[in-house]
Amino acid sequence: MSAELAHADDVALSHDAGHESDHDHGHPATVENNFLGLPNIKLAMWAFLGSECMFFGSLIGTYFFYHGKSLAGPLPQDVFSIGITSISTFLLLMSSLTMALAVDAMKLGNKNSARNFLLVTALLGATFVGFQVYEFSHFVHMGLGLSTSLFSSTFYVMTGFHGGHVTIGVIWLTMLALLIHQGKLNTQRLPVSVEVAGLYWHFVDIVWIVIFTFVYLLEFIQ
């Protein structure tokens, strides 16, 4: 293992799995664990996700701040289609499961299975984005432009940023799967690379869990 590792380290990217942190390789490209003994990239991802909480918190907060104050229609109840949104919501939820399974497989060193789960996850995510594109174009068709009303502006910005996050995730996971397939990544750091991508992906999913319930489902409560 150490022979392979030493070799792989020479072509290492800047993110280290941290598994071998207390190893004796001195060169900076591999010493990625910080003073806490944790992989920097995972720490960074959690810090980033913390800031994302505030980011999406403000977008969702703004949506509700202006809820019911739109002057011009169509209003949420006129355009929302719970049926279609439920399907895409379910797909995104399932993508979280496949993502977790990818992380799990990678930890066990099962690269092929990890790659496959990553691809399935990316596919589910891409389908979600497809649904959103359809939804947006449908809304625009019904006369709901970006600047039609307070509802339309806050809704599009909120869900648009979420969809953007999903899109980035899809690209990320696809790249990761490809690199795993080509064997281009350092085997030692792969588990953390996949885990960190997973953290991002799950976060995007939980943001949607909130949006789906609070924006879509609660809209139809009398």
Partner: peptide
């Protein structure tokens, strides 16, 4: 440290935005 990094802004968001509203 992960829990702290994630949970504190989450709690802040959950308390702050509804409070402002």
């Amino acid at each position: 440290v992960y829990q702290f990094l994630f949970m504190s802004p989450l709690l802040l968001a959950v308390v702050l935005f509804p409070a402002v509203g």
